[in-house]
Design a binder for these strands. Sequence first.
DNA 1: GCAACGGCTTGATCTGCGTCAATTCCCGTC
DNA 2: GACGGGAATTGACGCAGATCAAGCCGTTGC
Lengths: 261, 261
Amino acid sequence: MRDAELPDIRQLPLFRTMAEANFATVTRAAYDQTFPAQVQLIDEGATADFLHIVIEGSVELFAGWQGRETTLAVLRPVSTFILAACIRDAPYLMSARTLEKTRVILVPSVDLRAVFRIDPEFAMATITELAACYRSVVRHTKDLKLRSARERLAAYILKQARTAPNGVSFLLPIEKRLLASFLGITPESLSRAMKSLQEVGAKVDGQRIIITDRRALEAVAHPTPLIDGPDHEGLTAGLELPEAGVDGLVRPEDFALSGRT
Amino acid sequence: MRDAELPDIRQLPLFRTMAEANFATVTRAAYDQTFPAQVQLIDEGATADFLHIVIEGSVELFAGWQGRETTLAVLRPVSTFILAACIRDAPYLMSARTLEKTRVILVPSVDLRAVFRIDPEFAMATITELAACYRSVVRHTKDLKLRSARERLAAYILKQARTAPNGVSFLLPIEKRLLASFLGITPESLSRAMKSLQEVGAKVDGQRIIITDRRALEAVAHPTPLIDGPDHEGLTAGLELPEAGVDGLVRPEDFALSGRT
DNA sequence: GCAACGGCTTGATCTGCGTCAATTCCCGTC
DNA sequence: GACGGGAATTGACGCAGATCAAGCCGTTGC
């Protein structure tokens, strides 16, 4: 694989603290690949041979059953995903596809497992990472089970706005149909929920959301760190991404799970 | 704390492989306590000072928001819970209460964090444990997002039956209102769903479920290891519990998350 | 023995969200 | 600037599951 992105990967919480030699071992065995949009990278049920790292572009994690399909996360650079499956040497529970032209790095899970047996720092980083992932899914589950569709949307909008510099206006980082799927509803329902929130403090114009009455929105969403995050010690990989979000820029950070999977 | 249960704890996947000295350190600082039914052990939002281990009885993990409440898991001996919060030194995302007279062991999370920094075996066990927990919640989320209430119930029944020795008849290990909450529906809806499944292969008589037509049930639930588990390498703590489940005995194992949390 | 209390069931009704179908909007392409 | 195709919206309608309100039944306590 090319060396250009090594520093980026090295900066990931997962790899930041490990010994240089071990980092070299892991990355030497890895290789990177660029895919066009809409390519399925992972098929749920397949065995987890590689840890994936998104370097450029974006990746959707989703799962299907009986012809239905649901989005579980959308990842942007630089994040890793399907760590848990690699560790357990078990079948992936999710599928993954590129949403646009995307470059990913593939780390053989064999090497991964070998290294965190001998590198305590890496083991610690893995533990922290997994705990974060776990808490992220728990939050999502609570969101689904405790809130209505409208409440989930309001909470999502407030959460996105929180990461935008001005705090009131931002562009949706993903297509609405994906957001709908992530929120566990249909695109039609999302559309109607959006409309209903316009009378309550969230102006919608295409991809742009403008919060006109935060209080009113909060009265619907009742945001809480116990559902909407973030974990108090800050995000992980998603945070690496500096980039703005000023009016006019799309925020490239994760919209879903706190970091990766 | 008393020493009688040390061997049980030592046998947990989480503690099985660690060095004896470190196990002693962890358990020396721990203490155990017995609570009556319906005592709240953990309040979500509080900081995670202790890893909990259920020794006797049973514990419900749940979460609330705006007066609503949902069950996320029910744990039986011997299982640990809220490991992730301890690791991240973060607020609990779930509350916990005893369902009956219950004995738990409390391990200060400070000691825990200290030990897996120095004991690679324990770090490995923690990684495996967390990965299992993570996959368990992902499955639950897929269940909720991809299946209808009726389908979830059918899948649950098949899953329970799978663990029963004769494979066709078992007693519900928990109250129906808890099962309903876990499945994300109301008790009334559960009751109606049960009734509707009687015409499809699952006879219900109080706590007893008898599968009369597995094929028909499977046609509703379409069970798959990618949602219903188990992870191919087998369960963890839940499995420690041998005990039967023969017609007439209640199965004491977890009904919810694969092991603990 | 009976009363009281929770859990479970059943019925009637309501409603949030899904489904189906028809436009309309947006964006890239020719 | 017209065309094509997928995304988004809108409307009409249906249904799964929630809510509200009795009643039932098994357990606990006096």
